[in-house]
Simulated assay, not measured.
Amino acid sequence: MISRVYRATLFALYQLCIVVGILAMPLAVAARQAGLSLPIHRVLENVEDAYEATQS
C-alpha cells in the first residue's frame, strides 16, 4: 500500500515537473540569452530516476 502511494506521488511530482518546465520555457530562453542556465533538467532527471526505480 505504501509503495503504491509513493509511486503515485512520484508520478504526480514527475508530471508537475514537466508542466513547470514547459511553463518556464520563456524564462529559460531569456535566461539563456543573458548567459544563465536554469537547472530544471536536473530536477526532472532526478524525479524521473526515482520514479523509474519504483517500477522495478
Rank of each mutant, 00 (worst) to 15 (best):
V47K: 01
I18G: 04
Y6R: 10
L44G: 01
A12C: 09
M25D: 01
V20D: 10
R4L: 14
I40W: 02
Y51E: 07
A30Q: 06
L13A: 15
G35I: 02
P26S: 08
V47H: 01
Y14W: 15
I2E: 15
A50Q: 04
V5A: 10
L10V: 03
P26K: 04
I40Q: 15
R7H: 12
A24V: 02
S37K: 07
V5I: 15
R7Y: 10
L13R: 04
A12L: 09
D49A: 10
F11A: 14
A34M: 06
C17P: 00
H41W: 13
Q33N: 08
R4W: 07
A53Y: 01
R4C: 03
V20S: 05
A53C: 00
A12S: 14
L36G: 12
H41A: 12
P26H: 09
R42N: 11
R4T: 05
A50V: 00
Y14H: 14
Y14C: 12
S3Q: 14
S56E: 12
T9Q: 03
V29T: 13
P39D: 08
S37E: 11
L16D: 05
Q55T: 00
A12H: 04
L16V: 02
A50D: 07
Q15D: 05
G35L: 07
F11M: 09
A24E: 13
L23W: 11
L36R: 06
C17T: 11
N46K: 02
Q15V: 09
Q33W: 12
L38F: 13
V47W: 00
A34C: 01
L23T: 13
V47A: 05
A28E: 11
A30H: 11
L38C: 01
I2C: 07
R42L: 14
R32C: 03
V43R: 01
I40K: 01
F11R: 13
S56Y: 04
N46C: 02
L13Y: 07
A12F: 11
H41Q: 13
L27D: 08
N46T: 04
I40M: 13
Q15G: 02
E45P: 00
M25F: 13
L27E: 09
L44K: 04
P39C: 13
A28W: 04
T54Q: 01
A24S: 15
A50L: 10
V19T: 14
Q33K: 10
R4I: 03
Q15E: 08
A53F: 00
A53T: 01
A50E: 05
Y51K: 11
G21W: 04
V29P: 01
E52P: 00
L13H: 05
R32S: 07
I18M: 05
A24W: 08
M25S: 14
T9K: 03
A53M: 01
S3K: 12
A24R: 00
A24I: 02
L16K: 00
G21T: 02
I18E: 09
L23S: 07
L27P: 00
A31K: 10
V43I: 14
V19A: 11
L38I: 14
I2Y: 11
Y14P: 00
